[in-house]
Computed example of a mutant assay.
Amino acid sequence: MGKLGGVALLIVLVFAFTGIVFVTGGGNNSCAVAATISPATATGLKPVAGYSGDQLINAAAIITAGAAAGVNVKGQTLAVMTAMGESGLRNIDYGDLAGPDSRGLFQQRDTWGTLAQRLNPTVSAGFFFQRLVKVPNWETVTPTAAAHAVQINADPDHYTPYYAPAESVVAALLGGDAACAATAVTGSNAQQLAADLVVKIDAGNITGIAPDHLREIRWIAAGEVHANCGINLAILQVITIAVNTFGSVGISDINRLCTNQYLGNTDSSHWANGGGHAVDFYSLDRTPTTGADANAIKLLKTLLPLMPAGSATGQVQCRAKAGTSLELAGVRQFEDTCNHVHLQVDPAYTGSLKADPAKASS
């Protein structure tokens, strides 16, 4: 299986030469925009987890190839992790004792493709993704197990220490697209937004845990009014953007007043002024989030330019510990548990998210 065939090769080569990534939010996202992780973008970044310069440019090429292959952020992170473990994100033009013919970011041998292909960061990454997606349960096994199934390294645990740095690098390179996300906020009819979300709930694209907060969405969709069980319009829009961006999300909390989950904070946007002014995502793209992982950073970069004045997000210490802290003008950050992403608007706010990201602070 040394060479990509037909359409797959054409796609990878197009991306190799154009650098274009078509960002879609999964099967249900109607927003598709052209975005580029250019060498200039990567070069302009400060060192991330000890990686800089050409290393970040190579990581950007891997991410681009992953988007071309339709692989999610976790898969892109696995590939960056693997290249870290194989080459230190350097495009090596020599092999070693174990593989004298190994070359490139992934140290691929001559059975993978031609020398020129293996030394092309985008094409060699395409080879990696082509094999990764054929690994059974690659999204749920440990990262090093998924990489080992592709690379067949002598040490199955070789890639373990590289996963956290890979998450940091991918998070630094991947940003959301606020202009794309803004298309989801043009709808200001809460009942219609809720009805659209119910479709995604029934399809399994939005999941919840006990106590059930998804019923709050169902009640709004059905036009039912339940005391202290409403959801802020902007929060419905946040949920819409999140599920469109990732294809699937898990929600642990919305209106805690509705479920009588008083946690000792009367000012909580989950609770204050009737509740329902915040949402907690415990998973993005069917992957648990820490509030500091690549998916979380992508969500925050997508949403925060659209958030109205007085908005806030949690997990600031989680991001600081992971080295992926964000500067969020006009959005307060606070400490929160590292098992979800918390987003809130001011409990007194009754309007929409900003359809024009340039006016986000107004």
Rank of each mutant, 00 (worst) to 15 (best):
L197K: 01
V169M: 13
A178L: 01
L173E: 03
V169A: 08
R90K: 15
P156E: 08
E86M: 01
L78G: 04
R131Q: 15
F15T: 14
C258T: 05
N295G: 06
T36P: 04
A348V: 04
I297V: 06
T287M: 11
V12T: 12
A149N: 13
S352K: 06
D356L: 07
L97T: 12
A67L: 09
T337I: 13
A272T: 13
H342V: 02
K200I: 10
A190P: 03
K74Q: 09
A309P: 03
A190D: 11
G27A: 15
N29I: 10
P161K: 12
G6W: 09
N28G: 12
N260I: 06
D293G: 05
D346Q: 05
G247N: 03
D336C: 02
G176C: 07
T313A: 10
A329W: 10
T64E: 04
Y262E: 00
N255Y: 05
Q333A: 08
T82M: 05
A227T: 14
L56I: 12
A190G: 13
V7Q: 12
A329Q: 14
L97C: 10
Q55I: 12
K200S: 13
I297M: 07
A312G: 11
A322V: 01
P121D: 01
E86Q: 01
T82P: 01
E167I: 02
A182P: 07
